[in-house]
Design a protein around this nucleic acid. Sequence first.
DNA 1: GTGAAAGCGCTAACAT
DNA 2: ATGTTAGCGCTTTCAC
Lengths: 356, 356
Amino acid sequence: MAATIRDIAKEAGVSVATVSRLLNKSGYVGSETAVRVQQAIDRLGFRPNAIGRSLSTAETRTLGVIVPALSNPVFADAVSGVTACARQAGYNVMIAATNYDSAEEVEAAGVFMERRVDAMILTVADPQQSPALDLLDAAGLPYVLIYNQTSCADRPAVTIDNAAAGAEVARVLQGLGHRRLAMISGRFADSDRAIARRDGFLAEARSAGLDAPPVHEVDFIALNVDTVLKELFRAPATAPTALFCSNDLLAISVIGALDRMEIDVPREVSVIGFDGIAIGTHLHPTLATVVQPSREMGEAAAQFLLRRLAGEEAAPPCRLPFTLRLGESAGPAGNARPADLQDPAYTREGDSHDDQ
Amino acid sequence: MAATIRDIAKEAGVSVATVSRLLNKSGYVGSETAVRVQQAIDRLGFRPNAIGRSLSTAETRTLGVIVPALSNPVFADAVSGVTACARQAGYNVMIAATNYDSAEEVEAAGVFMERRVDAMILTVADPQQSPALDLLDAAGLPYVLIYNQTSCADRPAVTIDNAAAGAEVARVLQGLGHRRLAMISGRFADSDRAIARRDGFLAEARSAGLDAPPVHEVDFIALNVDTVLKELFRAPATAPTALFCSNDLLAISVIGALDRMEIDVPREVSVIGFDGIAIGTHLHPTLATVVQPSREMGEAAAQFLLRRLAGEEAAPPCRLPFTLRLGESAGPAGNARPADLQDPAYTREGDSHDDQ
DNA sequence: GTGAAAGCGCTAACAT
DNA sequence: ATGTTAGCGCTTTCAC
């Protein structure tokens, strides 16, 4: 079996307390004994048992991360940011995927609580109505949401202003000459951010005097976009010239489906996604999208919790800036595209103010 | 503070042993007391402390996963498979990313050992020469490699036959009429599987009597493919008509770079990747690739370890089958493409035999 | 500068 | 069917 701190103590002819002090650099230990102990450690290949330590210190130095799915690059990137931060602070990361199922959210949160993670980072379906978060609040366990759309005062979250981003999309599409917009979204019940994006999008479209864009929900798993698109493009006269998709994966599917329908993107219809996943820039046409700083979100969330656990009184970052990346998939509708927007490299900084 | 098993015992008027028995469904507990205890648990919102349990049972019910990066969908998908299996077996998953750095591999392995994970799943740079694996072997800690190319007898690994896959690529490209092949690969020092793919590719090209395809290494992080491609396509007479890329992300970059060089894929040059990441099917042209069953790999690895931990004597799956997905990016070179291969849906089952 | 001992929350004999 | 108790490996007062 693996050596214990007592084996080391015996081997070095000291007490366990001394070994512990050396391991944690807490308290004095004579330079000579230090050497003896270190040699014993090396000789036996001793690795302190973190479980024993955790039981004693009541901290696991572990962060729990709960995301809807890892197969979506947006979440994988955020987790990437979390692990990087955690690692250099000597923390570990446990992960769980919920498959966009709120029951799995509670379960994962419960499991992580039993595992006594020091804090959690999560994305839930609906932060206003979340048994998982209720659980954490009741237990007083520190957490930060990522991606979720809440006001910071409410439940701590590092995210972007999804409503502002949705509005920005409507504004830009309109600027490109589009008059008939439409939105295709994943299930709103699964995503509060999709709701915010829609609301901002619709509000801006309305205030610009456009017809209210139709909004279609699709099952993100089954991804039955074909039927929805058939419906949307049945009558050429009323067909939209621009499609706002609630996320990049969805946008990519939509572009594929339009291609099969022999509808040309962007010549006949513009498509813009949301998230800014990396491969978007490698697609043809290049994917237009709202870029979220996913990795930074994960980092910021971890950073905040780590500080808090270290006793520092840090405020959560709350709102990160988003960026519009006008890829080629949001090209001109007809010939309505203004000259000053023809540069695909055109980007525009999003708001980073802190209100809801 | 959170309630302990003793609080529950007191609250229910029983001993801690009884509470423990109820929690673990081990040993008898009267149906009447069971109710009292359960009520106490509910009343106090008690969650058993897994740390205490682990210290006592010497098992953490945790799997450690170490992969080069989470931002590569290939690894994210495998992790996805692992978490799914783990979850339904009551296990948890810790993750670490090494950034293709072998020093980080050892560090992560060491940390996971201190955390006392029950087993590990990992992808290393070189399984033949791996301090991380030496560490695990020395400690007798169960592990399975994924993606890594080893013979099963050597170090347990669930993977595909990368050499056979590389050969298959050469064979198919040749079947499409290509005579001048080339390979672009990530650093071989970082990836034993890239080496195997290359070797199989070159061997098949040779035995088919083709000129030895040039092989170019590129830095997978910096992704400086442009210079390499400039070099390859300097002289039209010797330029390759087909490019084999060691992974999909690389292939996508290559296609983008060729596009910027105004070299048409697949009209002027075919490109085929490796991995079979999901978005490949949504690209234009659709990405030709060798599909690895990533999620299944993660599942198989987890499954095997879980069985082993449960005391069952299970053999690791070792070799999973790969599939060739002949996307549009590997189209005809000139007009040499034979009629019977024109269907992009053409796929071919890979070997699943177990040899090296 | 070092040691002895209590205790973290749980499980698992062993008793009864 | 239930209780008592001795650890699991570590940290941390408190003495010396």
